[in-house]
Amino acid sequence: MTWRNVMIKDGDYLRLKLDNLEIEKGGQKFSIPLSDIATITLEGNILTLTTKLLAKLAQHNIAVIVCDNKYVPCGIFMGFGQYHRTAKRNLEQVAWSEKLRNEVWTEIIRQKLSNQRAVLIAHDADVERIDKLQELIEHIQLADATNREGHAAKVYFNSLYGMKFTREQDCLENGAMNYGYTIIRAYMARLVTSLGLIPTLGVFHRNEFNSFNLVDDLMEPFRPLMDWYILEKILPNYPKYLTWEARCKLIDFLNQPYFYRGKKTTIDLVMLDYVNSFIKVMKNENLSELTEITLGGIARCMRN
């Protein structure tokens, strides 16, 4: 089972050695079994790696996240076609009905907004704003035809960060969220491709220029969990800018404990179960099979 999310800063050289990732830095060498690795995040402008290693990473379904010179993730490398019945699953995915897609998207948005409301409650937002979010949840229509998600986003972020806050601002809060969402997106992309799904064919997102429409659909309920994690673990401890330690902490979100179905697990495994449950729903047309993602699942574990 993969469980490591590796971050490499200004390493000199990466190579494959006997099914291990070998990292050479400052004259020292470190080895990590590929079978342990889920994602690798690369920072720095002088790092070199071999095509032989890249091929092996793709075969192990390891997502490689590349950061720009401002340490912001800007690209993802991953394998394709590794699932043993990719063609069969692709045909199933293409055959999903529009009605079922709309029902699934409605449930995804309901979960996202419910988690946003839970974040507001956890951080003592105004009762009126919490009630407003509840009202928006109760009035979600099929496929969110009236865009309750968009209305909720304004209420949500203004409640957390002030009435003048927008997601376009250049600030620590947005920097942390953008970085954190990219980590979730990369891992979700890894799961989607490793389970034989077509990442471009979304449930709701259908942008012709987006290679990860389905990924962007499925990650929605996890965004508020990352928001809560940033409010709890990042902003209080790294109040000025996203340091190396803060970025490592954001990547470590995937390893955070989660209380799920009566037992303690981790976020990355919950994400895997979520994608598998989504596949079951789309095959069996039983919406109740979709895993319920809640803020309480992570908050309960991390506060105990």
Rank of each mutant, 00 (worst) to 15 (best):
I62E: 04
R206P: 07
I108P: 00
T86D: 15
A58K: 07
N255W: 07
V270W: 00
C171M: 03
I279D: 00
K280M: 01
L269N: 02
F278M: 06
A58M: 12
E208Y: 08
L91P: 08
T291V: 14
N61W: 14
L269F: 04
R185I: 05
N158G: 09
G262W: 01
K17P: 05
Y241T: 10
L197Q: 09
E135N: 10
A87N: 09
G79Q: 13
D10Y: 04
F204C: 13
N286F: 01
M7F: 07
F209S: 13
E220N: 02
E98P: 06
W244R: 10
L214P: 08
F204E: 14
W3I: 14
D124L: 13
M163R: 08
A143L: 09
D124H: 12
L197D: 04
D124E: 08
R89G: 03
G27R: 06
R4H: 08
A153T: 12
S194C: 15
V6G: 03
G180V: 02
V155L: 15
Y156V: 03
A63D: 04
H139W: 03
A153W: 04
V275T: 06
L54Y: 05
T266H: 14
S194G: 09
C67R: 09
N286C: 04
I279S: 05
L47V: 12
E22G: 13
Q82H: 15
L16W: 08
V127K: 14
S159F: 09
Y181I: 05
N45H: 13
N61F: 11
I293P: 00
C171S: 08
E43R: 07
E173F: 01
N115E: 07
I140D: 03
I234S: 04
L195F: 09
K70T: 11
T39D: 05
F80T: 11
D273S: 08
L295M: 15
V275W: 02
K25Q: 06
N115V: 06
V6T: 12
E168V: 07
K233Q: 02
K70Y: 14
F253H: 00
I230F: 00
T51K: 04
Y241E: 14
I32V: 08
L47W: 06
L160I: 15
I8G: 00
A125Y: 11
L235N: 03
H151Q: 09
A95M: 05
V94D: 03
F77Q: 12
V72T: 13
L34Y: 01
A186L: 10
K17T: 15
K70S: 06
E149G: 10
D68I: 10
T2Q: 07
Y260E: 06
L218D: 03
L49C: 12
L290G: 02
Q111P: 00
L34H: 00
C67V: 03
E107D: 05
R89N: 12
W3T: 01
A143D: 01
E289V: 07
L287Y: 03
Q141F: 04
I183D: 00
Y187N: 04
G150H: 10
N276W: 03
E107C: 00
K25D: 00
F222N: 04
L242K: 02
L136P: 14
I279R: 02
N178V: 14
S159M: 15
I267Q: 06
F157S: 02
R300F: 15
M7D: 11
V119W: 11
L133K: 05
N174F: 06
G180S: 02
L100N: 04
P257I: 04
H123Y: 12
D10H: 11
G296P: 13
L195C: 00
D131H: 09
